[in-house]
Every structure is written in structure tokens, then in C-alpha cells.
Design a protein around this nucleic acid. Structure first.
Length: 562
RNA sequence: UGGGCCGUCGACUAAUGGUAGGUCAAGUGCCUUUGGAGCACUUUGUCUAGGUUCGAAUCCUAGCGGCCCAGCCA
């Protein structure tokens, strides 16, 4: 433990651990767990939990288990198990133990028998519907089930036969005998086991009764001697039940601590809804770069560091709020700015002919790979008479404050030359299709000329003869409104989908060095944004996903002018 | 409505009875071979009302507002 007081901002969970350490509550141990249900892919909200669970244990020399909460065989699959392990590792965390709640089925069963014998659990013959009716409401107490006071021997016999498969799905449950009048609905004799004749992804056909979350989770924590069991706020009401089982069983007293789940503007963090998007093919899959899943944002080009920094910055509390997406984007830009090599790419090409440049000449210009990283070195970029520039970088009739190329104006071609626009060519639709310029040989490399002449804009370009064809996928928010859950009558969240969330540009021209870009490599396309090579390569083209655009001051000025 | 939890700049989060601070966003300027990055500066906040106290974001009381719970989901 460092002598200096920690300078990092604390949070209430850390404070609890600090306090427990001080009072020696758990003999100085910190044991956590990350307990995903393998019924979907992990998303950025899980990343927050992962950073908390693993991060806090790491900080105090503790341990973290990865435990799959696989108590409901009807929703769970190994595909999800695999993706979850991959995502946790990719985020940069290492679990100590790898467990499954299903590892504990036998122990859980034995404990259930123990509770039956102690008169704390009973087999109920009520149907799901009847159970609901007997439960009462928020304001009215429930009623005891007519089967609540069955003799222990009968309960034992029935529970054994439930396990043996004698009863159909839904016919009987095992319930904890607590208090049907409790103001906390979770304590009104919660179901511990249900009959489910369904094959389990790990235990196969061994079981036809499965424990409920409330009965499995705390006991699993206890078995792993978890000291600090972090979960989200909605489980706050379950804590008394979590503690009840542990106390009745007299087992290791794990401690549940609830924190606020992550909410992000313009995005949905619900596995159920993300699954719906996948199933309805509103996105290409769980790893569609527009998805807030770990696999989606990985494919989009986010780095684990950026995500971890983000999770550290947003903090942990019990306040129900929503983080602005801009905050996440800030941390990707911050990280990528330091590490992404710069390259030149033209997304919407406009042909430029430099009339006074020798017809067949090619010059290899020196370009800096990353101004933020001296070690990144330089590379050569070919320059020639015909180049492409961005359509956005030319205006026939430039508005105020527009500094880029326009008739009669001189700009710098980055690492190239100063060029002045002399004329333009239009098509029948009055669109500019070609621009003619002259260059100043005294500005080679983009250097200012001896006369000290200044230019207000520097634009990027690609030599036409050397350009590599590429496809670029531009992404906008998947949802068009800040809170995708807010819908008008009769609509569901899919009504808020942003129809413009994906724009495919297939005529892009990128500098030759990108011909060999491998899937997953990240670049900054100068003046445009950060891009990540995708594994897709339709028609042999290189494909890039836009991770996030660069901050665009001009766009702001232009918007304000309107 | 019974119960549980939560209210601090526009957003997120610190301050643990003693100077309301940080990050993001927004704005202004500097700088710039990316209108990027960087740097500097600026704006904006303790839900309300009472009380305790020399002193309250913090403690107490009462309001107000928000979130969660009536799955054999987790």
C-alpha cells in the first residue's frame, strides 16, 4: 500500500473496501467476481462493471473470478460464453478463477434440502398464475399458499421427485418460507427452484430443476468467498434476501454492494433490446460497429485503454444519470491521438490537375507519421500532376471564414506544394468535376516560400495515379434521439433508430501505404477522423470503419452561420 | 399507492461539519504544414423550506422531484 494518500478520486465502493480493510472485516481480503449471464454479448455498460470488479481487486491485491451466471438454460449458449471471455481479455483483465453457477448445482441442491429440513423452504403446487395472485400487490400483503405448511417429509419427497423429473414444467416450485406480508416483495416466499425440462449448455440433461438467481447468486459468491459483490441498483431490494439465504445456511457472509448502471445518451444498453436489433437484422450482428457491445466498438476501432480511461473518469455512485456520448468519444480521441499513425485519405474525391507540374513526374514526399510521437518516424507519399482532394475542400463560391480552395485562392497541399486554383470544369448538372491549379515549386514539401507568403488552409490529397481504392463506412449514432427508450404511444424503441447511422462510401481514394492495412489497424485520416481497417473486403477493396470524427471547428462555424 | 434507493455546474463526479474542486461539453484567445492536437482563460451548480451549529452540500425535520420492485428472467 502506498504511503502517500491516493490522489485518484475515490468512490463509495472503494471507501467501503477501505473501511473493511481498516476494520479487518474480511481478514484483509478483497475478493470480487464478474458474473455475466451468457445470454448475450457484453456491452460498454458491462465494461464499467468489469473495470470496477477487476480494478478494485487489483488495487488492493485481491482476486477476481469470472463466473457465468448460467441458471436459466433456455436463454444461455456457449457462443455467448466464448464472446464474454474474449471481451474481458481484450479489455485487458485476467480472472483468477473461472466458474459457472452450474458448477454449484449439486451444492445448491444440498443446501435446499437443508433449508427444507429446517422448515425454511417448501414445495408449492401453485401455478405461476396462482403464485402471482397470492403474492398480493405493492400495497396489499400476500396470502400464504395452501401448500406452505406441508410436513418436512412430504417436502423432501416432493423435491426429490422434482429433481427426478416426475413433474412437468411449471407444475411445482420450491419456495423459501419467509413472509408473505413483507413490504419487500422479494421476501414474499420467493421461488428457489423451478422445473425446466431443458438441456443446459454445460450440465446437459443432468438437471430438470434449476435454481433461481436469488437462490444461486449469493451462495455462489459465498462459495467463492467473495468479499465484495458488486451489482447494479435494481438488486438493492434483493439484498435482504441475499443476506437471508446466507444467514439461514450459516455460510461465508459475502457482502452485496449496489452501484448505478451506465447509461449513455443516444445508446441502448439492454441485452434484450440489443438482441432484438440483431434478430430483426436492424444491424449486421452483435459486432456491428454501431452496436455498443464490446465486440462492436472493438470493430469500430475503440481501444481497451480508451474504454478503461472512460470507465475510470465517469466514476461510480448510486445516482441515476446518463453520461453524454461525447465523454466516451473524448476518450477515444485522446487515446488514438497519441497512437494512431496519420495517413491521407480522400473520401469524396474531386480531381485536381496541376497544370504547370511536369506530366510524368512523380516525387516522393516526406510525411510525418505521428506528430504526437517522434518515434513513429516518417514515410514517403507520392505526388504527381493529377491528384484528388476532398470535395468539401473546394467551394466555387466560398462563404465567409471558409479558408480552403476556391477560384483564385492559394492553399497548402499537406507535405506537397502550395497550389492556386486557376479554373474549374463543370458537368451538365452544374457540378464541379475538376479543378485546375498551378503550383509554386518553391514550396516543396508544403514549406512556406522564401517570400514569407502565408496560406490560411492546409488540405490533404492523394495522387491519382498511385491511389488505392477503398470503401469507407461512416457511422452516426444508432439512435436519433438522446433517450432511445422514449417513444410515443404504440411505438417501440426501434422507432428511434437513426436511418442515417450508416453511410457507405465506395469510391474513396487512400494513399498507397494503406494497401496492406490489416484488419483492426487504426489510423488517423488527416483532418477527417480515426478509422479502423475492417475484416470485410468486398471486391478486394480495403474497408475502413470510421471510429470517430476529428473535432471539426469549421463544421461548428458553418452551423452557427445558418 | 407499501417498500427500497437517489437529488451538487448543461452532463458525470469530488469535497466525509471548515476555501464548492476535477473531467466532458460550451465559449474566448494563443499557437499551428491537420480548422486536428496543445496551451491559457471564461461562463454555469449544492432540489425547496425550516432547524441544529461559530460554521451545513454534508447533521435533523418536513416537503418536492426522479429511479427500482408485483418473472417459475438475471
Amino acid at each position: 500500500m502506498p504511503e502517500e494518500p491516493e490522489s485518484r478520486p475515490s468512490n463509495f465502493v472503494r471507501d467501503i473496501i477501505l473501511d473493511d480493510l481498516k476494520t479487518n472485516k474480511f481478514q484483509g481480503r478483497v475478493q470480487t467476481r464478474f458474473p455475466p449471464e451468457p445470454n448475450g454479448y457484453l456491452h460498454i455498460g458491462h465494461a464499467k462493471a468489469i473495470c470496477l470488479d477487476f480494478g478494485l481487486a487489483d488495487e488492493f491485491g485481491g482476486h477476481t473470478n469470472l463466473r457465468f451466471d448460467d441458471t436459466n438454460p433456455s436463454k444461455e449458449e456457449t457462443e455467448y460464453v466464448d464472446s464474454i471471455m474474449e471481451d474481458v481479455m481484450w479489455l485487458g483483465f485476467h480472472w483468477d478463477g473461472l466458474f459457472y453457477a452450474s458448477d454449484y448445482f449439486e451444492q445448491l441442491y444440498a443446501w435446499a434440502v437443508q433449508l427444507i429440513k429446517a422448515g425454511k423452504a417448501y414445495v408449492d403446487d401453485l401455478s405461476a398464475d396462482e403464485i402471482r395472485k397470492y403474492r398480493g400487490t405493492l400495497t396489499e400483503p400476500g396470502k400464504d399458499s395452501p401448500f406452505r405448511n406441508r410436513p418436512v417429509e412430504e417436502n423432501l419427497n416432493l423435491f426429490e421427485r422434482m429433481r427426478a423429473g416426475e413433474f412437468p414444467d411449471g407444475s411445482r416450485t420450491l419456495r423459501a418460507k419467509i413472509d408473505m406480508a413483507s413490504p419487500n416483495l422479494n421476501l414474499r416466499d420467493p421461488v428457489m427452484y423451478r422445473v425446466l425440462h431443458t438441456e443446459h449448455h454445460r450440465t446437459g440433461k443432468n438437471w430438470c430443476i434449476y435454481p433461481m438467481y436469488d437462490y444461486a447468486h449469493g451462495q455462489s459468491d459465498s462459495l467463492e468467498r467473495v468479499t465484495h459483490s458488486m451489482c447494479t441498483l435494481e438488486f438493492e431490494d434483493h439484498r435482504p434476501l441475499y443476506n437471508w439465504f446466507i444467514q439461514q445456511l450459516g455460510i461465508f457472509p459475502s457482502q452485496q454492494i449496489e452501484f448505478d448502471r451506465l447509461n449513455l445518451t443516444y445508446t441502448l444498453l439492454s441485452k434484450r433490446k440489443l438482441l432484438q436489433l440483431v434478430q430483426e437484422k436492424r444491424v449486421s450482428g452483435w459486432d456491428d460497429p454501431r452496436m455498443p457491445t464490446i465486440s462492436g466498438i472493438r470493430r469500430r476501432g475503440y481501444t481497451p485503454e480508451a474504454i478503461r480511461n472512460f470507465c475510470g473518469a465517469i466514476g461510480v455512485s448510486k445516482t441515476n444519470g446518463s453520461i453524454e456520448l461525447a465523454m466516451l468519444e473524448h476518450f477515444v480521441r485522446e487515446d488514438l491521438n497519441k497512437r494512431a499513425p496519420r495517413v491521407m485519405a480522400v473520401l469524396r474525391p474531386l480531381k485536381v490537375v496541376i497544370d504547370n507540374y511536369p506530366e510524368n513526374q512523380v516525387e516522393e514526399m516526406d510525411a510525418v507519421n505521428n506528430p504526437e510521437d517522434a518515434d513513429a518516424g516518417t514515410r514517403k507519399v507520392p505526388f504527381s500532376r493529377v491528384i484528388y482532394i476532398e470535395q468539401d475542400d473546394f467551394r466555387e463560391d466560398p462563404p465567409k471564414q471558409y479558408f480552403r480552395l476556391s477560384p483564385g485562392r492559394e492553399v497548402r497541399l499537406r507535405y506537397g506544394y502550395f497550389v492556386t486554383c486557376t479554373s474549374l470544369v463543370k458537368n451538365d448538372n452544374d457540378e464541379v468535376v475538376e479543378v485546375h491549379c498551378t503550383y509554386d515549386p518553391a514550396t516543396r514539401g508544403g514549406n512556406s516560400p522564401p517570400d514569407g507568403r502565408k496560406v490560411k488552409a492546409t488540405i490533404h490529397w492523394v495522387s491519382a495515379a498511385h491511389a488505392v481504392d477503398a470503401e469507407v463506412r461512416l457511422y452516426e449514432n444508432l439512435f436519433a434521439c438522446e433517450d432511445p427508450n422514449r417513444t410515443s404511444e404504440g411505438e417501440d424503441f426501434t422507432a428511434n433508430l437513426n436511418p442515417l447511422s450508416l453511410e457507405v462510401l465506395s469510391e474513396c481514394k487512400v494513399e498507397p501505404s494503406l494497401a496492406v492495412a490489416t484488419a483492426g489497424s487504426r489510423y488517423q485520416f488527416e483532418r477527417l477522423g480515426y478509422f479502423c481497417a475492417d475484416r470485410d473486403s468486398p471486391a478486394g477493396k480495403v474497408v475502413f470503419n470510421r471510429t470517430v470524427a476529428l473535432k471539426d471547428t469549421w463544421a461548428k462555424i458553418e452551423k452557427k452561420g445558418k
